[in-house]
């Protein structure tokens, strides 16, 4: 492989993305910062949420995203049941003209952890309804396998709870998901800083999805740049093949005779 020359695109459901960093639009202090951060991240796909429209409320976030040719990935954030999530996805498809959905079905508002039972139910229904389903899931390898089995186009295990910035709490679980997955694995949620994103990629994830780590950083634009570099570095490191960890030293200089 020629360094920097080979194409290493991410392909999800037949669609090619050059950037392996998917950025969310939530949490930014204002639209100007969000726009600058999105650009600095180099993302080609960004999440939005669906909420009740208020009179006079605009669709500002869509204008920002579309101005730069970034594709929209609606989520079902805030849904607690499969029924709610399915309806929200269907409304998003109608409003945004995309059949892609980041499927979120969370158990409660304190942990925001996925409810695996409802998630799987919603995933099945949405796949049957023709959606390209990207489920936000726990780091349970068996749940990930079940989601793939029902036809999800990717699986998106968490690193840690949404917005926690704790990084990857169970690296081994992510490695197991990667080892068995036949669809792209996207580490979604819980990342705090660039080394977390690099670690996700080094573990073999195909992409990283994050929002708060950038939008709530002191300098979101700089953090977006750092994340883009980290994802790229982590991907390279994964493909390069790291050396095994050793208990004892191994000299890198020839022995003296």
């Amino acid at each position: 492989m020629t360094i920097g020359a080979a194409t290493d695109d991410l392909v999800i459901a037949g669609r090619t993305l050059r950037s392996r960093l998917i950025m969310g639009t939530g949490g930014a202090p204002n639209q100007t910062v969000l726009e600058a951060a999105l650009l600095a991240s180099g993302t080609e796909l960004t999440t939005v949420a669906m909420r009740r429209v208020d009179a006079g409320g605009g669709t500002g976030v869509l204008e920002v995203v579309r101005r730069h040719g970034i594709s929209v990935l609606p989520n079902t954030a805030g849904c607690h049941t499969a029924a709610e999530a399915v309806l929200t996805a269907q409304l998003a498809r109608e409003a945004l003209h995309t059949d892609w959905v980041k499927l979120e079905v969370v158990a409660d508002d304190r942990t925001l952890l996925p409810d695996a039972v409802e998630l799987l139910r919603a995933a099945q229904r949405l796949v049957d309804d023709g959606f390209v389903v990207l489920p936000y899931t726990t780091d349970d390898p068996i749940v990930a396998r079940r989601l793939e089995d029902v036809g999800c186009a990717a699986v998106m295990p968490l690193g840690a709870p949404i917005g926690s910035g704790l990084g990857i709490c169970n690296p081994h679980a992510l490695e197991m998901i990667v080892a068995q997955a036949g669809v792209p694995v996207i580490c979604d949620a819980g990342l705090g800083t660039a080394s977390d994103a690099a670690q996700a990629m080094e573990l073999g994830c195909d992409a990283v999805l994050l929002a708060s780590a950038v939008t709530r950083a002191d300098d979101p634009v700089r953090m977006a740049r750092a994340m883009a570099a980290a994802v790229s570095a982590g991907r390279d490191a994964r493909l390069a093949g790291r050396i095994p960890k050793r208990f004892w030293a191994q000299a890198s200089s020839p022995p003296r005779c």
Binding site: A49, M50, R52, V53, L91
Partner: peptide
């Protein structure tokens, strides 16, 4: 669907109108 917005609403209908906002 938008193509069916000529549908007449009836007493007791619960109508939701959603749009995209920053999130996720």
């Amino acid at each position: 669907p938008r193509t069916s917005w000529d549908r007449v609403v009836v007493d007791g209908d619960e109508i939701e109108v959603l749009c995209a906002v920053p999130g996720g």
